[in-house]
Every structure is written in C-alpha cells, then in structure tokens.
Nucleic acid binder design. Structure first.
Length: 823
RNA sequence: GCCGAAGUGGCGGAAUAGGCAGACGCGCUGGUCUCAAAAACCAGUGGGGGUGACUCCAUGCCGGUUCGACCCCGGCCUUCGGCACCA
C-alpha cells in the first residue's frame, strides 16, 4: 500500500475490476426482497454536468446501502435519446442524428463509469434504438386498440423555429420550452393520447402516493384541475339554437346579466352573420386569433368584448340577457361559453363596469344588504341568497346541491365535472423520434401497422436542412408502402412521437431489457416494479411523472401489469448552483465534472455533492468545500494507513477496555446508528457524512493515546471504511484491501449497532434557572428525577444563584435537564 | 391574485419527539514543523460588556401557549418555486 492517496490509480484500478467482475449485476430472485433504485435517465447531450453527478450519486448511495443491507437491488441506466438537439446538430454539423447521438452516449457512458456508479450496465437501454422504439410503437398501437389514441384536427401550439407542434406542457410562458421562440396557434391533424379518460383516477390515486413530496402531488392536482359544476342551456331569443354554459357558481344564476362566448365559439357566426355587427365581430375575432396564447389569457390583459346584438333567456327566471363575445373566455375549457354574474365574480365585475352592464346582487353577507350601485368589487365570499326566487334566505354554499337538483329536475341542464387536463398531443413533425406506426390507404383509410411489421424504421437516406419541414415528409422510400389490409397503395404517417412517450415506460423495460418478442416479461416486471425510489429534478413534477402514471394505469387496465403506480417513493433533488443561480452555460457559472474528477477524483466529487446540502435542497457549489472533502479523504487514508499493518492479521477479541477505548467503541456504534438512520429514514447524506467525519476525529484522538487497544481500533477502522463505502466507493475498496481483505467491500453486510456499546455510566445534565442555562453537572445515567433534582439544588453554583429567591417549582428530566423556577 | 416551500454565524449547513442553538465542513486568526512555502498537526472563532469569575443579547418581525420555543399557535415581512381570466 502506498503512503499517498493516489485517487487516479485507485479509481482506474477498481473501475476496471468492477467492469470485469460485474458486482452490480442483478437478476430477479423471488427468495430475496427486491429494491429498485432509479434516477431519471438523461438526454445524451454528450457531457455530464454537476446536476447529473449529484442525481446519480444520491441514487448510488441508496443502491449500495440497500445492497449491503441484503436487498436484491436493481440499479439500471439508460438514455432518453430521441429529440431535437440531435437534429439541430445534424443541420449544423452535417452529421446524422443517430451518429451524433451514439457518440454522445458512448462518451457519457464513459463519464458515468468514471463516477463509479454501481449500475447494472447489462440492462442499458436507449430509446432511439430500434429494439426499444419498436416497443414504443407497439405500445402506441396497444393504446390505439383500446381506444386511447385518436386523431383530430386541432388548434395546436406551433413552434416556427423547431417547425413542430408542442404539447401544452412544453409551452412555457407562451414560448417554446426548448428554444424560447414565440409559439403560434395552427390548425393541424394530430394524434392524441386520451389521458383525460384517466383524469379522475390520476387525481384520486395521488392519495396513495405517501412516499411522494406534497409539493409534487399538489402540482399534479392543480394541473389535473378538477372542478364540479353544472352545465345548462340559455335559449337564444328568436332562434332555435341554445347556448350551453358551464358554471361552478350555480348559486348565482339569478344574478346573470349577460352571457359571453369565446371568440372561436361556433355560434358566433350563426348569431352575427348578415347583421350590422358582422364586420366588427369578424375584426374582433381575427384580432383575438392573431394574439398568442399568453397575452390572450393573461390576467394582466385588459378584458375586451363586443355585443353580438342577440339575446338569450335565463332558464331559471326567464330574464332576457345580452350575448357578448369576449377575450377572457376560452374555447378549450367547459363549453366555451359562460354566464356573466358581475356581482359575484371578479372578472365579470370588471367586464360589467367597463361595458356598463347591469350588476345584480344575489348573495349578501349574513345580516347585511349589498348595494350594487356602490360596490367597488365583486362579493365572492359565502352569504345568504337574495333575489333568487325559490332559494331566497338559504346560505349559498349548502344550497349548491339543491340548486343543481332543481336545474336537473326542470331539465335546464345537468351536473358536470370538468378537468383542466387536456388530451396529450403526441404528434411531432420531426425526424428524430419514434415513427407513429400508422398508414393511410386510399381504400381502407387509417390503418395501424401490423405488429409483425414493427419496428417502423427511421430511414437513413434523408437530408437535414435548417428551418425546413420534417425530412420524413420527403423520403419516398419511407412514405410509400402497401396496405396490409387490401394490398393496395398506402402512405406512412410521417409524424414521430413526442419523446415523453418514450420516457413514459422505460422503467418497465429495465426489468427485462433484452426481451425480443415482448415489450417486457410480466414475471420480471411484476417482480421488480414498482420503483422503490425514484430520484430526479422537480422540473419533471408534472409532465414525465403524470405521463408515466398514465401509462402504468392504462397498461394495468390492458392486463399487462399487476400494479397501477410506477414510483412508490419520489425524491426531487435540488439544483446545483453557483453564485446563487443554477449552473448554466448562458450564465457562465459552470464547473465541469471532468475538471473536478481530474483534479480531486470521483470519490471527492461524489462526497462533496452529497455533503454540501441535503438532497432536496439547492446546492451552492464551492471549490473550497470540494477541497475540504478531498482533505477529509486524505485524512481517512492516512488514518487507515497508520493502522493497516497492525490490523491486517484480522482476528481480535474485545476484552478489557479502558476509558479511552470505551469512548472509541461508543463513538463507533453511535456512528453506525446515525449513518444508518440518516441514509434510510431521511436521505440526509450530509449529516451521515458529518457523522463519519466525527468518527474519524475520534480515531485521531484515540491514536494519541499511549495504550492502544487494537481490537477496538480494528472495529472502529473497519466500520469507518464500510460506512464510507456507499459514498466513496473507490477509496474504501482500496482501504478495505489494505486491511487484508480479498473480497469486495461492496459485498460486505452493513454493520450492526451494539446497543451495549452505546451505554454510558455518566451523563451531563443541564441545570436551568427560569429556563436559562446556569450549570452543567455530570451524574450517573440512571439517576432518577427526584435524586437529580436534589443533586442539582445542592450544586454550589446553583445555590449561589438561588440566594434570596423562592423556589416555586422544579422540572426534572432524567438524563437531560433540571429547570428550577424561582421568584 | 391563488397554492406551496424556505428564512439560523463571514459561508454551506446541524439541532431526528418542545429540553445545552450553531454539530460537521469551509473561511479566518494565532501557533508547531520548515531556510522558506505547501501539506499536516495543535488552539481559537455568533455579537456586545467586563481585568476576571462572569454577564447580557441572539434562529426574518410582532404577539401567544409552555417550567422551557429555531421547533407549536395567530398575525405580518422577505425570498424562491408552481399555477394563473379554467367560469
């Protein structure tokens, strides 16, 4: 063993050994409890960043810890490898997206191996590999078969820069999530997944996810956005048509003073064509369509509207109310038409004030009257119903049910539950994605590609040009085919799937990644799933996690799975920051893992990212802190080196121990306890590491002691190295070897706490007077409350403090403190 | 606007069930070793006052509960994150 800690040599040595011995290979084994640890798989950008290092280090500690505790651990890694950057690279550097992607994967795989993460590399998957996307396509057809995939013309979010459609979820503040270009609306025929069929169950089952952060569950709840209300019809005066509106405030129906349609509402032209307002309406509607969605729907935007000249009838009281068109009504939600109740809705109030529409009070605060002429804002709080014929005098909230019943009984409308969640648009007009396996036949129409013909391979003879349409659109070898039903001419769908489809099931594929005739082996999937611990950034709180839950539930319903939630426990790790903001190229505050690994080694890099902050919090990068972690590993190295020769013999029996040795034993076992609890119960790796540091400090103190009890030292040192091994796997493997072991430390059992070693004969107890610390006394651990009180009161310091004062009460907590209350 | 999280030394953070605030690390100060430096090791390190034993103040602010509050309750302030005209 060398005297100096040569991290480079050690890390290379064991990485080669692990590559050869495969100590992290896994296979289903019903006789052992399983544990599936998973980090969100990365997009292969080519370079690992600190966020990856942190994410994978966290999961690796968990995986290694569970393995040492005797679990059969599955810890796989793969690549979310379809997507736009590869195509952009193709255009920019004239390199095929596949080539670019596979090179990136190769280089990132190398970097991950340099981190010493305990992956079972035999299970690696890449979503862009035909062996994988064949099954993404198969799943698409499976969903199609079960009526969960459909095609429709839709006003979609179009990114002109990417020349593709984006899901609502990929439009952030009105701009493209990837390239920050303004997104437009465009009408196109698009494929959708019917996730709205699962809205209710996706919402309900959030309650089952006790291992998920509330924050994420709340975000999903808001995204699904369930609301309960009533839909009812307003008869248009002088016409046959009715306007159907949706409301959750049916308690205010008697206060309706107008009805508003969304500009896109089909009744708009029916109502206005051939009338005086026709051209004004057309102009207004045109103006609204020209606006992008954020400025159209922002609360900041001023409400604008136009009277159609038509009227409709409130079914409950027969009142005639004007029909308007306004920018603040959305066609996509509810019925695209709403009733305006200015007295009890903020938006309606603002609108009514602007256009001088009547304000009619129908809810008044208890025991008070509301005057519509003096109101300065809508009254939205609970109250008593007024001017509402049969319901006058009722409290509005409890009356909701009665009113809904009344509406249903009279045939005015019915109860309705709405969700904000929309169906998932998966069509992308791009090349580098899984082709949608559908055909269009002149005779048979829309035809799914037969399973035997999968995968629909991406053609290689394509050209990539900037700003152009998808290269698939111009590839005749790809498009032209024959219809499997009639044998006639057919053309292929040229859209590919949103990459979120590929990432909605990869965690299932890891259970049987090599399965060639099935999407996955049921036996394996049902053994390994659900994922016991999933770790990733909170930016996936909605999209990826919701889609994955949807896929899992649907596949359960199709009979392929025996469970309906994919991730039992979720940890959302914080960002890696420097100078207060997230490390990013644009901010110029990036530190590359390569650089840190080169300078200090992977063990130091891992240790620092785990030590600097608890995992769910943002981590502030600090190079001096990294040096501290490096110093610590050197300190451990020298300590073990100091004792290695003496301890190699191995066998020691702990006999008589003096006070110093007893202390070291106690610290050893306290450390086992703290590290175990910090890892398993709380994922607080920062405090686990500080506990290990304290053990090292205690060993150094003991080292200076004149009499050395090698049995106790042996226990302390071996424990130290084992406890350190999940965090810093290379150095601990080397140190383990230097202690005379010829098997891997990573196959060792996690150490057990000797409760007897924790016991102490004496303990320090705090003495407070009126809650203020006044003295510390050392007393026998088992001293009872009464004896402790007597002892505290007799202390000279305490006596001094009590002079001239009257003791009113004494609180005595054995082993902890005595509080003397005086006057 | 609504929902959620967080505010503790010079910095990252700790206090696991209401019981010693500041573990551990970084930084800083002084020292040992050295021709010198680096490394390493030792000591100190929340703020104020006192020669000193000591003492007062201190976990964003104000109040409450309690023998005792970083922790529980009420009200504010600030920062961050999510949603945002969803009827």
């Amino acid at each position: 063993m060398e005297e100096r800690y040569s991290f480079k040599e050690i890390e290379e040595k064991f990485q080669a050994k692990w590559e050869h011995d495969k100590p992290y290979a896994s296979s289903a084994d019903e006789s052992k409890p399983k544990y599936y640890a998973l980090a969100m798989f990365p997009y292969p950008s080519g370079k690992l960043h600190m966020g990856h290092v942190r994410n994978y280090s966290i999961v690796d500690v968990i995986a290694r810890f569970k393995r040492m505790q005797g679990f059969n651990v599955l810890h796989p890694m793969g690549w979310d490898s379809f997507g736009l950057p590869a195509e952009n690279a193709a255009i920019k550097h004239q390199i095929h997206p596949a080539e670019w992607t596979w090179e990136n994967i190769a280089s990132m795989r190398e970097q991950l191996k340099e981190m010493g993460i305990s992956y079972d590399w035999d299970r690696e998957v890449a979503t862009c590999h035909p062996d994988y996307y064949k099954w993404t396509q198969w799943l698409f057809l499976e969903f199609y078969k079960h009526g969960l995939v459909y095609k429709k013309k839709a006003a979609v979010n179009w990114c002109p820069s990417c020349a593709t459609v984006l899901a609502n979820e990929q439009v952030v503040d009105g701009v493209c999530e990837r390239c920050d270009t303004q997104v437009h609306k465009k009408d196109l025929e698009q494929w959708f997944f019917k996730i709205t069929d699962y809205a209710q169950i996706l919402l309900d089952d959030l309650d089952k996810l006790t291992g998920w952060p509330d924050k994420v569950k709340t975000m999903q709840r808001n995204w699904i956005g369930r609301s309960e209300g009533v839909e009812l019809d307003f008869q248009i005066e002088g016409q046959d048509d009715k306007i159907r509106v949706y409301t959750t405030r049916h308690d205010t129906i008697y206060g309706v003073s107008y009805v508003v349609l969304a500009p896109e509402h089909p009744l708009v032209s029916t109502l206005t064509s051939g009338t005086q307002v026709e051209s004004a309406v057309k102009e207004f509607v045109g103006k609204m369509q020209g606006l992008n969605e954020i400025s159209r729907t922002s609360t900041e935007t001023e409400k604008e509207g136009l009277f159609t000249g038509a009227y409709c009838i409130n079914p409950l009281n027969g009142t005639k109310v004007p029909i308007w068109i306004a920018n603040y009504v959305l066609m996509e939600y509810g019925t695209g038409a709403v009733m305006g109740v200015p007295a009890h809705d903020e938006r309606d109030f603002t609108f009514a004030k602007k256009y001088d529409l009547p304000i009619k009070v129908v809810i008044a605060p208890k025991g008070q009257a509301l005057d519509s002429s003096t109101m300065t804002e809508a009254y939205v709080d609970p109250g008593v119903m007024v001017n509402s014929a049969p319901f006058d005098g009722l409290e509005n909230e409890p009356a909701m049910e009665k009113i809904a019943d009344y509406i249903q009984q009279h045939g005015y409308g019915e109860r309705k539950i709405n969700f904000r969640l929309r169906d998932w648009l998966v069509s992308r007009q791009r090349y580098w994605g899984a082709p949608i396996p559908m055909l269009y036949c002149e005779k048979c129409g829309e035809v799914p590609v037969p399973e035997a013909d999968l995968p629909v391979m991406l053609p290689t003879d394509v050209e990539f040009r900037a700003g152009g349409e998808s290269p698939l659109k111009t590839s005749s070898t790809f498009i032209e085919t024959t219809c499997p039903t009639c044998g006639g001419k057919a053309s292929r769908e040229t859209d590919t799937m949103d990459t979120f489809v590929c990432s909605s099931w990869y965690f299932l594929r890891f259970a049987s990644p090599k399965s060639s005739d099935k999407v996955f082996e049921s036996k394996d999937v049902n053994y390994w799933m659900p994922v016991d611990q999933y770790v990733g950034g909170v930016e996936h709180a909605i999209l990826h996690l919701l889609y994955s839950r949807f896929f899992t539930k649907a596949l359960r319903d199709f009979g392929h799975l025996k469970f309906d939630e994919p991730f039992a426990n979720l940890l959302t790790q914080g960002m890696v920051c420097m100078y207060g903001s997230k490390m990013s190229k644009s901010k110029g505050n990036v530190v590359s893992p390569e650089e840190i690994i080169g300078k200090y080694g992977a063990d130091t890099a891992r240790l620092f990212t785990l030590f600097a902050a608890p995992p769910e919090r943002d981590l502030e990068w600090n190079e001096q802190g990294v040096e501290g972690s490096y110093r610590f590993l050197n300190r451990v190295w020298r300590l073990v080196y100091h004792y290695a020769a003496a301890l190699q013999a191995g066998q020691f029996t702990i006999g008589e121990v003096d006070e110093a040795a007893e202390t070291l034993r106690r610290v050893t076992h306290i450390t086992i306890k703290r590290v175990s609890e910090d890892i398993s119960a709380r994922f607080n790796f920062n405090t686990a590491i500080s506990a290990i540091m304290e053990l090292v400090n205690a060993c150094y103190v003991y080292k200076e002691h004149s009499h050395q009890n090698y049995a106790v030292v042996n226990e302390a040192i071996r424990t130290l190295v084992v406890l350190l091994s999940p965090f810093a796997p290379h150095i601990s493997e080397e140190l383990w070897e230097s202690l005379g072991n010829n098997t891997s430390i990573h196959l060792e059992a996690w150490p057990k706490v000797d409760e007897a070693a924790l016991l102490q004969a004496e303990v320090t107890v705090v003495v407070q007077i009126n809650g203020k610390l006044r003295d510390r006394i050392t007393v026998p651990t088992d001293l009872d409350a009464k004896a402790l009180e007597v002892r505290a009161l007799s202390e000279p310091k305490v006596q001094q403090q009590l002079e001239g004062k009257q003791v009113i009460k004494v609180i005595s907590v054995p082993g902890k403190l005595v509080n003397i209350v005086v006057k």
